[in-house]
Structures are given as C-alpha cells and as structure tokens.
Design a protein around this nucleic acid. Sequence first.
DNA 1: CAGTATCCACAAGGATACTG
DNA 2: CAGTATCCTTGTGGATACTG
Lengths: 118, 118
Amino acid sequence: MSDAPSEDCLAGWCADDDWCAITCTADVVGRKWHPVVVARLLDDGPMGFATLAESIAEVSNTVLSDSLEDLEDSGVVDRRIVSERPLRVEYALTPRGESLEPVIDAMAAWGRSEHAPG
Amino acid sequence: MSDAPSEDCLAGWCADDDWCAITCTADVVGRKWHPVVVARLLDDGPMGFATLAESIAEVSNTVLSDSLEDLEDSGVVDRRIVSERPLRVEYALTPRGESLEPVIDAMAAWGRSEHAPG
DNA sequence: CAGTATCCACAAGGATACTG
DNA sequence: CAGTATCCTTGTGGATACTG
C-alpha cells in the first residue's frame, strides 16, 4: 500500500495532484486497523495499549503494536510513556490525527448506510 | 485487507458496530488504487479502460484490471461492454459508488491539506 | 503492562508477454 | 482495445512465546 507517494507525501511533492492527495490519505488510513484506531482515539480520547486492544478486540497485540508504530511514524498518533514501573503508555492523536476526523466520519457513515433500514 | 467484515458487510451483520462500519468502507476503498479509480469516475464520469489507465498512469493494466473487478464485485462500479469489435468497455459508478463521494472528497481534502501553504 | 521476537500464510502490487 | 496468464516480491495480518 505504498511506494512513490507514501514518504514523499510528507515532503509535499504532489500538492496539486488530485489522485496523489487521495493516495496520501490512503497511505495513512488504508491499512486494516488504522482507521479503527484513529476512530477510537477520536471518540474516547487518549488511552493505553490494553484499553485500545480491548476496544477493538479482534486485533492481536502484534498487529496493533505495528499499526500504532505506523501511525506514530505518520505523525497521526502521539505515544507517551506515563510511568515506567509498571510500564504505562498512552496513545493520543496529534493535531494532524485529529484533522482526520472528517475522513473517519465519512467512512463510518458510508459503512453504516450500507445496512441502514432505509 | 479483509477477513471477517468484508463479505459479511453486505449481509449487514455489523450495523451497530462502529469500527465495523469503518472496516466495511476500508474494504471497499482501502486498496491502493480503488479510491483513485472512484475519484476519477466521480470527476469525469464513465470512461473506458484505456482512458482510466492513462488518467492514473502509474498503475499497470494488470492491477487496474484487478481493481476494477474488485470494485465491480463490491457493487461500486458497473462494467458494460459498449462494442465487441473493437472491444470497448465502459466503467461507470453505480449509485452505491456515487454515494462514496463524501468519503473520497474527505480523503482528497485531507491529503491536500498536508502540503497546503497555510 | 506493553510490548518484542519469530515465523507463517496469503494478499496485493507489479512487470512482461500473450490473446479474443 | 481490453484484457488474461504467469511469475515474482513485498506487504500485511496473525498466532505463539518470551521480556524489560
């Protein structure tokens, strides 16, 4: 799900290209659990690894960990250590991550409309 | 990018689950070129394979063909043969595909805002 | 608790060549 | 023109076990 755009996105090489803008976004929320993680953080605010894992449930810790790292690299999620012993980490959205709200909302709305009564 | 939700999405098993609604959408537009194809069709209306391929450029015909088949299966794109000799096919969005506009717009807007001046 | 280390299986992107 | 057939490589999700 990434080659040309992905990294260069951040460098701004494709500002005027429409499909490029789209793939840039897809690179950030185009993996299976990425948009779900962002949605959870958007809804319930900052939370720890375990809480996040429980609220999503189907995702394994390996994958969740990988996704979070990915989102951190994208500048969407902020990871911060709250305490060392016991280890406690908190994940929160960065402003950039919060700006994804319209995208996540649109995705949720469309997915919901698929099985809406009317 | 799909296991549980993907197919069941259409069956409506997860209507009340928020993250599920999101993954349902991700299953449809979460692959590299899917949202771009939908965007092109949304912008310029129905078009043939070659036109689509040119307007996206970076995608190989193998992948584009695969993506279109995928979108057709998702009920987002309608494929119709216009002429047999020479073979001419036209791809258009279904109503379901058109309803993706808010999602695509949000994605394009976010991607664009990444390198916007202000 | 919050991961990392491994390993696996399969999906997906892509290149090249060929066909109805 | 609009693909299909092959083959290849990497990405990605996932399970299990182990660690600071």
